[in-house]
Design a protein around this nucleic acid. Structure first.
Lengths: 174, 174
DNA sequence: GCATGGGTAGAGGGACCATTCTACATCTGT
DNA sequence: ACAGATGTAGAATGGTCCCTCTACCCATGC
């Protein structure tokens, strides 16, 4: 059933977000997913697949939360975007970006690397289009990544810094 | 001897940088350090200590490479700083910041978290003082982290984006 | 009534790994 | 010459973990 993989992915995402990627054993993941070991392995045939399922679920949630119903105005869109990322950090990702954490925990996995790249590229692209700044994906991704990574250290100050740099980005041409 | 711990730390840093923090076994670390298992455990009594020794060594190398002999001029200093971080990424950290990777691989370690915070705080402080931008640590760290994290995706474009945002930071007051 | 598909519960295999311990080599100062 | 500190080489231990497999339960349709 489609609901089963959704339920499993949601549980896995919760488990990995709370406990990191290295330490939770498959038995802990089973408890978090709320199914039996056999069913867990049926839908995600290896621990690596459990990681991928969790990240795909997170990607969907992140995109939905960050990009839906942004204001139309250029500056307003970017400001809102950055504030939402700050809110996401506070509520969901106090330990930093889950995609980077997954790759760091298993740097040899090509599938994981590809998923990270796809996630970041899609975020940059959606941000550029939402803010009306085509071709500025590099600058926007730099702001978003900088905010995500410096939020644990500077909190609300990091959001303000990102918004200030974002205004400079909009005013500066080229 | 002091040279022994230095040699071990250097080898450990190389091993973790090349293979990540999760997968290398202590035997691999021993080979990378070029000493016996007994000596390795004498200077770093647990695998967690090996990680800390590697990160301390990296911190020293990073600070020395990024911050020595920066130009005096405000804009020149920040431009050079960001270019050097780009060079560091290309040559030494193609897979991203080693400190973040270590914390991601073992999120429960308080010592590791503290070391990450100290490293980032010191980087931000040195950057602010080198660029003559006291009180702008949050903005500078955001730029540096953004560059570090987006470099794997955008390469030289990421450096240019960081430098452009850096110029905006210097011109904008407050 | 019962075959079947999809679920639970949980034990076991086989491999790997961090750490400790034993036995031996080599330098150094006296 | 030799005692002691410091090193190497590598085996043994104890534990954990991923994954598989057996045994069983239960709804649904014919």
């Amino acid at each position: 059933m489609a609901e089963m993989i959704e339920r499993i992915s949601a549980g896995l995402e919760r488990a990995f977000a709370a406990r990191g990627f290295a330490s939770p054993s498959v038995e802990e993941l089973r408890d978090a997913a709320g199914v039996s070991l056999r069913t867990l392995y049926k839908y995600t045939p290896s621990r690596a697949d459990m990681v991928l399922a969790a990240l795909e679920h997170r990607h969907r949630r992140y995109m939905a939360r960050i990009f839906t119903e942004l204001p139309e105005a250029q500056g307003g869109a970017l400001d809102t975007l950055l504030a939402r990322v700050g809110g996401w950090m506070a509520e969901e990702a106090a330990h930093g970006c889950l995609f980077h954490a997954a790759v760091a925990a298993d740097p040899d996995s090509a599938r994981l690397r590809a998923l990270l790249q796809r996630h970041k590229a899609e975020v940059a692209e959606r941000a550029a289009s939402a803010c009306g700044l085509p071709g500025r994906e590099a600058e926007l991704l730099l702001l978003l990544e900088g905010l995500t990574q410096s939020w644990p250290l500077h909190g609300a100050q990091a959001i303000a810094a990102a918004q200030q740099l974002g205004r400079a980005l909009i005013q500066a041409p080229q």
